[in-house]
């Protein structure tokens, strides 16, 4: 299997008594985008940091580009690009100075440097901003510059730790387009996020909770196998009374508020829109709309996190 870019085998990290990552197994193939989903503190960053050689695994091993990270972290580092959760470029340097710095650190040959710099700048959409101090750039530009710095040496493997946190939706969209074009060129991408909608952009998602890998599948499969029921969208008011009415009702699995409507999960074929509406009206709730919807990853996520226990 030469196409396996990253493999975690029983990867574990303990900080004292606290088990941050608990025996995780998974692989990422070349050209594949794998999304890490999970609540804060689930162990996403710790896993990525172990695979980058920043933290030493307590048990198990991580193979990156076929190299054991714990045994030879330096050899791994030539093959990877990393974007940390916290922005970690030099704010007191300009765009081009940051890029040149990482070009030097990764020993991009002098002859190909201008072309790589130009590529990174155009990819990040930073043309005309080369001489701007990074501290004066908005969040979306900074994230794209960080990605530009991370791919300057054309690494076959990218680790992106919550790259889009704090970035506006439009910039996030653009960022994902970039990730897709990199994956199309054969780059393996492991990306963590807490935006559930971003999970839909991944080839496979890995749900992590309390240091354990709960499930790993394509977004479609993930939704199909993990929801375990039918999902209804119900627009009604007051929401509080509706939730109170639906709780502890037989054959009803879960109720969650989404904005000013409800997502109601019921056992397959237990209810249809009419019976659900009737049930609510009995409780004095005014229902304006109730119909089945296709679940999002978020619906599945909320359901599964609820089932496996909340954040630490």
């Amino acid at each position: 299997m030469t196409s396996v870019a990253v493999a975690a085998e029983g990867l574990t990290k303990r900080f004292g008594d606290f088990v941050a990552v608990d025996g995780i197994d998974f692989t990422v193939a070349a050209g594949e985008i794998v999304g890490f989903l999970g609540p804060n503190g689930a162990g996403k960053s710790t896993t990525i940091r172990m695979l980058c050689g920043l933290l030493r695994p307590s048990a198990g091993r991580g193979l990156v580009a076929g190299i054991d990270v714990a045994a030879d972290p330096e050899a791994v580092r030539q093959h990877i690009g990393y974007m940390s959760q916290k922005f970690s470029l030099y704010n007191d340097l300009t765009v081009i100075e940051n890029l040149r710095f990482f070009g030097g650190i990764y020993q991009v040959p002098r002859a190909s440097l201008p072309e790589r710099l130009a590529f990174a700048i155009s990819m990040a959409g930073l043309e005309g901003r080369e001489e701007r101090l990074v501290s004066t750039l908005a969040g979306g530009w900074k994230q794209r510059l960080a990605l530009g710095c991370a791919i300057l040496h054309r690494p076959p493997i990218l680790f992106l730790d919550e790259p889009t946190s704090g970035v506006d939706p439009q910039s996030r969209r653009r960022f994902w387009d970039l990730i897709h074009s990199l994956a199309a060129d054969g780059v393996a991408v492991l990306v963590s996020t807490h935006y559930m909608d971003e999970a839909e952009y991944c080839d496979r998602v890995a749900l992590i909770n309390r240091g354990k890998l709960i499930d790993m599948a394509s977004p479609a499969e993930f939704k199909r196998t993990n929801l375990g029921g039918e999902l209804f969208l119900v627009e009604c008011r007051p929401l509080g009374a509706a939730i109170a009415r639906l709780q502890d009702t037989p054959h009803l699995l879960d109720v969650a508020a989404f904005g000013n409507s409800l997502h109601v999960l019921v056992e397959d074929s237990a209810y249809d829109s009419e019976s659900l509406t009737a049930l609510l009206r009995q409780g004095g709730v005014e229902v304006s709309l109730a119909h089945t919807i296709a679940p999002s990853v978020e619906d599945v996520f909320v359901r599964m996190i609820g089932r496996t226990g909340g954040p630490h």
Partner: peptide, 8 residues
């Protein structure tokens, strides 16, 4: 430092 450490 986090990024610097991740480089070779």
């Amino acid at each position: 430092m986090e990024l610097l450490v991740s480089t070779p």
